[in-house]
Simulated scan of single mutants.
Amino acid sequence: MTQVGVIGIGDMGSGLAKNLIANGFETWGIDLLAARQQAFGDMGGRSAASVADVGRNAQIVFVMVMKGAEAHEVILGSGGLAETMAPGGVVLLTATIKPSEARAIGDALDGRGLHLIDSPVSGGYPGAQGGTLTMMAAGTDAALAQARPVMEAVSASIHRVGTAPGDGQTVKACLQSLIGAQFSATFEAAALAAKAGVPGQVILDVFSTSSAGCGVVNNALEKIIDRQFEGTGSHINTMHKDLTISMSLGEELGVPLHTAAAAMQVFHAGRTRYPDGDNWTCTRVIEEIVGAELHRNSAKVTR
């Protein structure tokens, strides 16, 4: 039996773990939060005492942390995967970090006997929990062949986007610049409809069956009109961080990202006003400005 590890078992990592276990893989996991560790054990996972414990027990390890510095530490730090995994093991970097950070990790791993697959994911909390994530994978033929059964357990679409560390993160940065723009346009359209007195269900029905309808827009509208602004598995900090990465790449390459920059400001406002909210909470900031809220069966004037 292939033994798999998951480092970071929050909203996304818990979905990875759930589907790995369901597909028969012995799955080791660790998280900084005790509640997440307990939930992981309850679903049948093997709780690890440390990152080193994961490395010693798994041939393939998913790294699903928040920041590049965290990924660097769990892979290359003292007691990290580079020190504890057996030669020939595969590190799946599924966290979203800067391309330059992924390249630095790849350079440091060179000659250490491990394979690195740079494969950020898309699909959010529903995709992670449902095992339908899109993976943007960059790695060698050998690494991808070795990891494919494990990747297929958590993903519905695996795209080979390159061979080198950083290639996957670059594609993800491009994708997030688009998704950020879709989000911010949806938030503004929802506030416009609220101020005009159009019920949310009408907007959802029309948008979802139009050429503008897509998973991003439809899901965001569902959350807005049902006033679900927290606890939906899509914390605003994550998208804010991802847009920061997109903007950084644009600056590095000299590419103007006017729309992504506007989305960045929308998310910045949302995170400042509602730091515990999810992505859709940005709509509340605009609604407060215009004095109206979009509900499923009505548009509510608040002042």
Score class of each variant (00 low, 15 high):
116 L>C: 03
67 K>D: 02
88 G>T: 02
86 A>K: 15
278 D>M: 11
36 R>E: 10
119 S>G: 04
257 L>F: 01
137 A>T: 13
203 I>Q: 05
209 T>P: 01
138 A>E: 04
237 N>C: 07
230 E>F: 11
265 Q>F: 06
102 A>C: 05
294 L>R: 01
77 G>K: 07
208 S>H: 07
160 R>H: 12
231 G>I: 08
204 L>Q: 01
1 M>Q: 03
37 Q>R: 15
252 E>K: 04
98 K>D: 07
161 V>N: 13
189 A>F: 14
46 R>Y: 11
152 E>F: 10
125 Y>W: 02
190 A>N: 08
104 A>I: 14
95 A>Y: 15
70 E>V: 11
243 L>C: 05
47 S>P: 13
221 L>H: 01
7 I>N: 06
286 I>F: 09
62 F>N: 05
286 I>P: 14
160 R>L: 15
266 V>F: 12
136 M>D: 05
191 A>H: 10
93 L>H: 11
53 D>S: 15
278 D>Q: 08
20 L>F: 03
106 G>Y: 09
282 C>Y: 14
207 F>E: 03
199 P>L: 09
71 A>P: 04
108 A>R: 13
122 S>M: 15
26 E>D: 14
112 R>E: 15
112 R>Q: 15
222 E>P: 00
278 D>C: 04
249 L>K: 03
22 A>T: 00
171 V>E: 13
77 G>R: 06
125 Y>N: 03
243 L>G: 06
3 Q>Y: 09
198 V>P: 12
153 A>D: 09
249 L>D: 03
273 R>I: 04
229 F>Y: 15
50 S>D: 12
155 S>V: 14
29 G>R: 07
104 A>P: 08
279 N>V: 13
284 R>H: 06
250 G>I: 02
112 R>V: 14
275 P>I: 11
198 V>Y: 13
49 A>N: 12
296 R>G: 00
28 W>D: 06
104 A>G: 09
24 G>K: 02
164 A>L: 08
188 E>S: 13
228 Q>T: 07
62 F>W: 11
41 G>L: 11
38 Q>P: 06
51 V>L: 14
12 M>P: 03
106 G>V: 11
160 R>Y: 12
15 G>C: 08
54 V>C: 09
8 G>E: 08
294 L>A: 02
237 N>D: 11
61 V>I: 10
188 E>V: 11
132 T>D: 01
